[in-house]
Amino acid sequence: MSNRTIEVFLNGESCLLPAGSDLADAIEHWLSEQQIPEKFAAAINGEFVPRSAYADTLLGSGDLIDIVAPVGGG
């Protein structure tokens, strides 16, 4: 991993992103790669991140990112 990339974990899977990426950048990338569903909500390190804050949320190395989608539930 060079200084120009950071390693984050998307739903537990290692993922390299350009250093300086914010959550909006990362989500755009993951959507284009079809790594995440189109209807989702996000959390970083266990804390909910509202959609309006994606662009202001800078990602750091080691961040644990949860992207969740609707499933059946009881």
Binding site: Q34, P37, E38, V68, A69, P70, V71, G73
Partner: peptide
Amino acid sequence: LGLRRQNPSAGDG
């Protein structure tokens, strides 16, 4: 209903 991590390739979601 619930929320879970999901792989979009499964298609069920």
